[in-house]
Design a protein around this nucleic acid. Structure first.
Lengths: 258, 258
DNA sequence: GCTTGACCCTCCCGCTACGTCAGGCTCCAG
DNA sequence: CTGGAGCCTGACGTAGCGGGAGGGTCAAGC
């Protein structure tokens, strides 16, 4: 019965779609995906149309819709396969955008933490922003357990001692001093020296914190002049340093082609 | 009791973190987040530390971990706030990467559908790839209901009649003929004419299907020569057209700075 | 022809992460 | 001193399956 012209058995479908037989039973019971036919013995027989439907079910489910909502979407007589693909593409792009925002918020928090700036309680939750995504649930460990990012994160986690943190802080302070010195010496932020210092700043983040792209660096730059707490913190080293460093960072990013 | 120095009430925390009071009760009961103190009357009193913990709980939960797993992550005595932020950043980046792969797979499916190519059952599910992400659950409609991508998708959905599809198909055919003609005339794919035709190809997708960036267009190009079904389909118009168009598309994308 | 093992069926109970009352105490404003 | 908003603790309900019991089905091999 392994997928002849007569159709697919539950087991076949389960293997193909990587879901459990139980799930298919469930979808049958709630009427979300009922195979067209049955064998005389009562075995479920799925056709290609059922597979298509299942594929869409899994997609929308993965995007966080309840099975009821999935049913509503799929049973809309107006949407063609094309419409579904377009809708799926649009939904994905939107999700990606939201995640990138979240990542940016995390970068923001990292900067704040790095510089010892206290965020207000509400602010901490703004992470999940106004268009709060929330849960995309399930999976986790077994899946995430062997993902690269997870391992990377695990590998680094706990590998810094207090000494390390002190060293990093000292390096950062030293860099700030050099930047302040350049500024005091009348160097232009978008000059050679300025851009080099900005690049050192970026490298310091890369080496000690996370992969800081030029895009991220630009984001941090605007933080430095846009968020008064960051500005204040930097200007403590030398007045005007936040702005100068901001300009240098932008110039450096631009020089690098961003 | 609205957040004095004595702490926050459940209601306060619920408002700040945008979760329900019931959720906080639940977390208390299972020992995931128990407020440090209580008032004489038994009212829960949360401190800033509890808020921090809650924030992390919500983050990891949103990333698909079960509450048990979240507890394990948070109660690891080795991870500092810094580690958490780094871990979160890594997890987000990974998720984004996975979603982008999925989006690419959808683009692939769109191309296949557009050209009437039949994917094998298994192939349809490869969408969810080897590192099948799966569910990030919940929310949906109320949230997604008013998201831009959703509206865009809804707006376009069902707005194409059979006539429209015929027109689009005819336009595509006509374009293919023009490309074949250019090729027959001995034009170089990376010449002015080739790149212009490639750009028309891209525009045709943009106008009728989805926002086709140069990156996506490059992806489609490799599909044209990499997937024999696409190649065959295009070479039906004129032998060698798939390769020629591929080269033209790459040249055009490169000209545009990608 | 008969067994055996891989599948299939239908209940049905269990689990997670809460939602949603119900019944009752507490607290501050007016 | 009273009303209403807010807090408490059960306790039951729900979604989306997981997992097992108890039993029929089917092609392969002896």
């Amino acid at each position: 019965m392994s997928g002849g012209t007569d159709g697919y058995s539950v087991g076949d479908v389960a293997r193909i779609a990587k879901v459990t037989v139980r799930t298919l039973h469930h979808y049958d019971r709630i009427g979300l995906l009922s195979p067209v036919g049955r064998t005389p013995a009562g075995y479920r027989l799925y056709q290609d149309r059922d597979l298509d439907r299942l594929q869409r079910i899994l997609f929308y489910r993965a995007l966080g819709f309840s099975l009821d909502e999935v049913a509503a979407i799929l049973d809309d007589p107006q949407s063609s396969p094309r419409d579904h693909l377009r809708r799926q593409h649009a939904l994905l792009k939107e999700r990606i955008r939201q995640l990138e925002e979240l990542a940016e918020a995390v970068e923001h928090a990292m900067e704040a933490e790095k510089m010892g700036i206290q965020l207000t309680p509400e602010e901490k939750f703004e992470l999940f922003g106004p268009d709060y995504d929330e849960a995309w649930e399930q999976e986790a460990e077994q899946r995430w357990g062997d993902t690269d990012a997870w391992k990377e994160s695990q590998r680094r986690t706990g590998s810094y001692s207090k000494e390390d943190w002190r060293r990093i802080q000292l390096e950062a302070d030293a860099l700030n001093e050099r930047i302040a010195a350049a500024m005091a010496a009348g160097e232009a932020p978008d000059g050679e020296a300025g851009m080099d210092l900005a690049e050192q700043h970026r490298q310091h983040i890369c080496e000690n914190f996370y992969d800081c792209t030029f895009e991220i660096h630009r984001g941090i730059a605007s933080l430095y002049v846009g968020d008064p707490r960051f500005t204040a913190n930097l200007d403590k080293v030398a007045p005007g340093l936040a702005q100068w460093l901001h300009d240098a960072m932008l110039a450096n990013a631009t020089r690098a082609g961003h």
